[in-house]
């Protein structure tokens, strides 16, 4: 009877068709992007070889925001139209987004050491990404905080929407706070002067990351649906045994 709302069989067929179209291009694009990023692009005149970290850092930062937005949208769909697949999608996307955010923070920190001479600077972008990371962690923690998984997914969905409204407010507050306390003397990551030879690997990596995300998303959704179904079946069986 859940069939009326979501059809796992149809989803599985769709996922099986789409997966190779996401997975292979993702792999090719990321390898090509890495090749250009590491071997076939010029070092920055100011940042030297460290600029190559940017090819992972910047797409990760984009992904961090992109995945959060996707997640919040599918949470809205789940809440409004009560579509269980939407909740599963949000649940599947959250850890992926959190990982991209973490990669963004790590690479930012690694880049900061040679450039700023320190592992962490309260730079506006890094700080807002850090807060975004905590929004992800809050979402994941809330989702797993209830004995009833349905309760967790709906609570977390509301949180994601509240977070989505807050993300721009937090971002601009932090940018403003940063200019107030730290006159712009540091080198901004991915500043305006990007050479065109840097754009190609950046572009390849960005598209590659997006496809990689879609691949992981489909795989995780499949796994989550199987886990859910297994839980439902064992529950039904337990109740049946108890009733006998």
């Amino acid at each position: 009877m859940i069939q009326k709302y979501a059809n796992p069989a149809r989803f599985n067929r769709l996922a099986a068709t789409l997966l190779p179209w996401f997975a292979w291009p993702a792999a090719i694009l990321i390898f090509a992007g890495l090749y250009f990023a590491l071997f076939n692009s010029p070092p920055d005149y100011q940042q030297g070889e460290s600029v190559r970290i940017m090819y992972v850092h910047v797409p990760s930062a984009w992904m961090a925001l992109f995945v959060y937005t996707c997640m919040a949208i599918s949470c809205a769909v789940g809440l409004i139209w009560k579509h269980p697949l939407a909740h599963i999608a949000a649940q599947a996307a959250a850890p992926i987004g959190a990982c991209f955010t973490f990669v963004c923070l790590m690479t930012g920190s690694l880049w900061g050491k040679p450039i700023w001479g320190t592992w962490w600077v309260w730079d506006a972008r890094l700080t807002s990404v850090l807060i975004l990371f905590f929004l992800y962690l809050g979402f994941l923690a809330l989702q797993n905080a209830f004995d009833d998984p349905a309760r967790g997914e709906r609570s977390a969905a509301i949180l994601a929407l509240v977070g989505l409204i807050n993300v721009p407010i937090i971002h601009y507050s932090v940018v403003w706070w940063n200019t107030l306390h730290q006159p712009a003397s540091v080198i901004k990551m991915a500043g305006p002067a990007i050479h065109s030879s840097m754009l190609l690997p950046l572009f390849l990596m960005a598209i590659g990351f997006k496809l990689y995300f879609l691949t992981l998303l489909l795989l995780r959704m499949k796994a989550l649906m199987m886990a859910r179904r297994a839980r439902g079946m064992s529950m039904a069986q337990l109740h049946h045994q108890a009733a006998e």
């Binding site: 069939q3 079946m233 049946h240």
Partner: peptide, 13 residues
């Protein structure tokens, strides 16, 4: 009206 042991995903896959 008890649902018994029916799987709620019954007939889906």
């Amino acid at each position: 009206y008890a649902a018994g042991q029916d799987d709620i995903w019954e007939g889906v896959s």
